[in-house]
Amino acid sequence: MLAYLVKRLLGVIPTLLIVAVLVFLFVHLLPGDPARLAAGAEATPETVELVRKDLGLDKPLYEQFWRFLSGAAVGDFGKSMRVKRPVSVEIAERFMPTFWLTFWSMGWSVFFGLVIGIVSAVWRNRWPDRIGMTLAVSGISFPAFALGMVLMQVFAVQLRLLPTVGADSWRHYVLPSFTLGAAVAAIMARFTRSSFVDILKEDYVRTARAKGLVEAVVVIKHCMRNALIPVVTMMGLQFGFLLGGSIVVEKVFNWPGMGRLLVDAVDMRDYPIIQAEVLLFSLEFILINLIVDALYGLINPTIRYK
C-alpha cells in the first residue's frame, strides 16, 4: 500500500508539468493585452509600455515561461499584476476560508445525503422515498445564486437572525455552507439511493435476512460498506469542485475565497494568479483522487493495490 502511494505521488509530477504548460499557453492565448487592461482606460501608449515593463510582459514568451516554471518549482509564483502582492500570499489568505466553507458544506450535505439516500432506498417507492427524492430534485434544480439570495433575504434581511456577508464567525458560515451544500446533498442522496437499491437485491443480503438479522443491521452492516464505493468516488469529485471555490456563492456572500480571486484575476488578465490557482486546483484534484483510492481499500479490504 505504501509503495503504491509513493508511486502515485511521484506520478503527480509529470501531470502537474503538463498542466503547467497547458495553463501557461492557455492564459497567454486569452484575448486582450494585460498591460493595456492594467494601465486602464485613460492610459497613453507610453504608459502602457511602462506598465508592460513593470509586469515583466516585455520579455519573450519562453523567458516568461521559464521564470514561471523555475519559480513554481520552489513555490514562488511571482507577484499579482493587479495588487502587486506575492501570489502565494494572495492565495494563502483565501485558501482557508474556502477550505472551511467546503468542509462544512460537505459535512452536512454528505450526512443528509446519505441519510436521505438510505431511507429512500429502504422504503423504495413509498412516501419517505417520494419526499426524499422530491427534496433531491429540488436541490439539484434550484440554482445556487437564487437559493443564496432567497436565504439571505429571509434569514438576514427579514428575520435578522444571521449576518448577510463576510466570513468572521461561525454564524457567517451557516447560509453559504447551506447554499453550497444543497446541490451536493441532493446528488449524494440520489447516488446513495441507486447504489443501495442495487445492493439490497444481492444474494448476500437475502442470506443475511434469512439468518434472521434485524433489518437495521442488514442495512448498516452488510449493505453500507458495499454501497459506499460509488458514493465515495462522487464525494471526492464534489469535494474537488467545491475546493475550487464556488464563484456564485462566494460572490453572493462576499466570501473572501478562491473563486472570487479567480474571477477578478481572469477579468484583469492577472496571469500569475490564474496560473497558480489552476495549478493548485489540479494538485487538489490529484490528491483527493489519491485519498479516494486509499479509502476504497479501507471500505472494502478485498481491493488490492498494485
Partner: peptide, 17 residues
C-alpha cells in the same frame, strides 16, 4: 467594504451592516 454582488450590498444596507 468591497461587496461585489448588488443584491448583497442592498441587503447589508437593510440589515444595518
Amino acid at each position: 467594504k468591497p461587496v461585489v454582488d448588488n443584491n448583497s450590498r442592498a441587503a447589508m444596507l437593510q440589515t444595518g451592516e
